[in-house]
Design a protein around this nucleic acid. Structure first.
Ligand SMILES: Nc1ccn([C@H]2C[C@H](O)[C@@H](COP(=O)(O)OP(=O)(O)OP(=O)(O)O)O2)c(=O)n1
Ligand SMILES: [Mg+2]
Length: 744
DNA sequence: ATCCTCCCCTAC
DNA sequence: TAAGGTAGGGGAGGAT
């Protein structure tokens, strides 16, 4: 059947488009996968590889694909890279071709697990020792437990947080699916109605992984938790959560997310096993690679769960196909998966519950209405405990829910929810078009709601700094700029005890959030920190810092740096009015947190007099930005815009600067580093404009601009001329710090 | 009406 | 001791 044929993956190595002429065999035995935007782009790389005897993979196959071709690798992702996953730059291909042989990859290396490890470890130690000496030491480390005042708290915490792991893995898998589409040239075929939807979900994921090496426990109640390897029967009072429990354990009523102590009450012989984070990463990536071999019409849900859509086959074949998927997953990962099949994602997903554990369940279109009728309402996706509560009464099954009219539901829930539920409980819910489209991130966040016990405002600032840096790293990873910053604080409820039930937990809290919209979007930690500090002072004005239990920062209104909407950001920049009251405050905050951010290495230098007008008039920055920014090019471009600014040529400045930012964000028109360089120049110009005019020039309205021009031209003409001769400018040279980018 | 902010809820 | 993250949908109520 079609599926099985297409299973021989989408390597696109032969057939399809015009056959590619073999020119050489230098890449024989090498295969590459392209991650993100590269120069040359993915499709060119494909042709080059094939023309020179290599292979091009549309998705990464661990231990099969020789190299991942990329421009850079985000810090935020490094922790989840596997052994043998080798990232190199695209010029390995072009240079090898010029050299007429496959060059050793190490000169083109971006990242390889193990290879860079040593350097990273050294780096870590120098950092650790120097900063430990600085400040933190005694108070923030108690018996090996880093509390949130320690600058390494987040890393340490993330290393043990299962929820952080599954969240980030899910995001990685969404990226993987998005990449898959981008790399396979043929954009997704329109989802015809009548397609079959497969829902694939690993059975008790974490437990399955553990049981690969503990097969004697296969029929025993088993659960995964942190408390697993401490003293034998000590779990009786453990407040640890169970991440996943086996099906025998579920028979006793144990559930994922339950406290160990409660689970042990229900099931005293429950066997607790420890986490195996690295293995979850490995298995999760593997199942996505496997499924990518069957179809590109995937939707990633989480690290162990996804949807696949394919043309309707005869029922028998659909089940066979599902069994085939399950067999391969079992053979290659040692974990069992279950598959639900239905005409829509809703039905497929509900079917999976019947399939579990280790099975397949299919619901045909004609069976839908009788199938859904006996489903539990609680199992409908989106209906949790609160909604069940609101429904009240003793409603259990969808059949019972069907007796409620949409109007009745609308009295309990909002308009959207009620419409959705009404359709869901009848099995009528269709999948929207977007369901199968590439999922675009709408926000980036970092929350720490554990281990927060502060005594000073400064403690919070320290954490906010770490969070801001984490967010910067994530924004860079997904190549986005943030247009808004939201701070969320969890504060101990007045009646809640000061000592929480769970050690260092947050206990019962009230949450407060506050949002700021940025006048120009950003990806920089310094600015995010500045905003969150401001917000925190507003929220905490009436609260004791000791009652703080959780801190979260969300960035939204994201703009893609590679898309044209970056232009929008720039246009906005020149429209908004200045909030004069904030200027001073901003500065104060900025002073207090100056320096210490690794991303930009800012060097202050002095340059000589302003050059003459003619010379600068036609500055050819268009060609300058084709190469990596250097001291000279950054200075010259900055000086050019400054000149326009100071000579009052605002219109020209606007046009040119917009174009500059636009081009700098466009990888086709500029070297990638100009994205950052242009940002720094933008910041700089902003500051200088304030210095010079007493107002941010990018906040000028039309009227203000006219006034300003008048002032410039008439009253201050002479003064200006004089100044022009003697300007000494303090400039900033931007250089990307090598902690963030690849070594060359 | 429609938008925005500050929540709450859900899912893994 | 314990590692309670993260992204998306949506509703209430006020502003526009
Ligand atoms: N409260 C939770 C829920 C889930 N997970 C983790 C552990 C699970 O193994 C994994 C997948 O979640 P699932 O909901 O798919 O649950 P399982 O895979 O454990 O069981 P099953 O899918 O068979 O119901 O996510 C977690 O840590 N904490
Ligand atoms: Mg599962």
């Amino acid at each position: 059947m079609n599926m099985k044929i297409s299973k021989l993956n989408y390597q696109v190595n032969s057939e399809k488009t015009k056959p590619i002429e073999k020119v050489s065999e230098i890449f024989k035995g090498f295969s590459v996968f392209v991650n993100g935007f590269t120069d040359p782009p993915a499709l060119v790389i494909r042709d080059l590889m094939i023309a020179h005897g290599g292979e091009y993979h549309c998705y990464y196959m661990h231990r099969k694909t020789s190299f991942v071709i990329a421009t850079s690798i985000a810090n935020a992702k490094i922790d989840r890279i596997r052994e043998k996953e080798i990232f190199i730059r695209a010029d390995w291909i072009t240079e090898s071709i010029s050299a007429g042989r496959a060059l050793p990859y190490n000169q083109f290396l971006i990242y390889e697990k193990g290879a860079n490890e040593k350097a990273r470890i050294e780096n870590f130690f120098t950092k650790t020792t120097s900063s430990t000496n600085e400040k933190c030491g005694s108070q923030s480390e108690i018996g090996g437990f880093l509390d949130a005042r320690n600058p390494h708290f987040i890393k340490d915490y993330y290393a043990r947080s299962r929820l952080h792991l599954i969240s980030t893995l899910a995001q990685d898998m969404k990226d993987f699916v998005a990449n898959l589409r981008q790399n396979s040239e043929k954009s997704t075929k329109k989802m015809r109605k009548g397609n079959l939807v497969f829902h694939i979900d690993l059975d008790c994921f974490f437990v399955s992984v553990a049981l690969r090496t503990r097969s004697e426990l296969i029929n025993e109640p088993v659960a995964i938790s942190h408390r697993a390897n401490s003293g034998a029967s000590s779990g009786a009072s453990s407040m640890s959560e169970i991440a996943s429990c086996s099906y025998p354990a579920r028979k006793c009523g144990v559930k994922n997310g339950m406290l160990v102590k409660n689970a042990l009450k229900m099931c005293p012989r429950l066997v607790l096993l420890p986490y195996q984070f690295d293995d979850y990463i490995e298995v999760s990536k593997r199942i996505y690679e496997i499924l990518a071999g069957f179809s590109m019409n995937l939707r990633a849900v989480s690290c162990d769960e996804m949807y696949l859509s394919c043309p309707d086959e005869k029922n028998q074949e659909a089940v066979e196909f599902a069994e085939e998927i399950r067999r391969i997953i079992r053979e290659e990962t040692g974990c069992t998966a279950s598959v639900g099949i239905g005409p829509t994602s809703l039905i497929a997903r509900l079917a999976t519950r019947h399939a579990k554990p280790d099975g397949v369940h299919m619901v045909t279109a004609s069976q839908v209405s009788s199938f859904i009728a006996s489903e539990k309402i609680k199992n409908l996706p989106g209906i949790g405990y609160q909604m069940m509560d609101k429904l009240g009464e003793n409603l259990e099954t969808c059949m019972e829910l069907q007796t409620k009219s949409e109007r009745e539901l609308a009295g309990i829930f909002g308009p959207k929810q009620s419409a959705k539920i009404w359709r869901q409980c009848r099995g009528l819910e269709e999948d929207s078009e977007e369901f199968w489209e590439v999922q675009i991130r709408k926000s980036v966040s970092c929350d720490i709601n554990y281990g927060i016990r502060f005594g000073k405002r400064e403690d919070l600032n320290q954490l906010l700094k770490a969070i801001s840096e984490e967010i910067e790293s994530k924004l860079i990873q997904c190549q986005m700029m943030a247009g808004s910053v939201t701070l969320k604080l969890m504060i101990r409820s007045p009646n809640a005890p000061i000592e929480t039930a769970k050690f260092m937990g947050h206990g019962h809290c009230d949450t407060q959030t506050k949002t700021i919209n940025l006048t120009t979007s950003t990806c920089r930690a310094t600015q995010i920190l500045q905003e969150t500090m401001k917000l925190s002072r507003i929220i905490l004005a009436s609260t004791k810092i000791e009652d703080l239990r959780g801190v979260g920062v969300t960035c939204a209104k994201l703009k893609s740096r590679t898309r044209k909407d970056a232009v929008e950001a720039v246009k906005e920049m020149f429209k908004k009015k200045s909030d004069v009251r904030n200027v001073e405050e901003n500065e104060k905050i900025e002073k207090s947190v100056q320096g210490s951010f690794g991303f930009f290495n800012l060097t202050v230098i002095e340059i000589g007099k302003m050059e003459r007008r003619q010379k600068l008039k036609g500055l050819d920055w268009l060609s300058m930005i084709k190469c990596a920014p250097t001291e000279t090019t950054v200075i010259r471009i900055h000086r050019y815009f400054l000149f326009l600014l100071k000579s009052g040529r605002f219109t020209e400045l606007r046009q040119q600067f917009q174009k500059f930012l636009d081009y700098s964000a466009d990888l086709k028109k500029s070297h990638k580093s100009w994205f950052f360089a242009s940002n720094a120049i933008q910041q700089r110009i902003k500051e200088e404009s304030k210095e010079f005019f007493g107002i941010y020039v990018d906040f000028l309205t039309k009227n203000e601009e006219a006034l300003m021009r008048e002032k410039m031209e008439k009253k201050d003409e002479e003064k200006l001329q004089k100044m022009k001769k003697n300007w000494k400018l303090v400039e900033i040279i931007v250089e990307e710090s090598n902690t963030k980018l690849n070594k060359s």
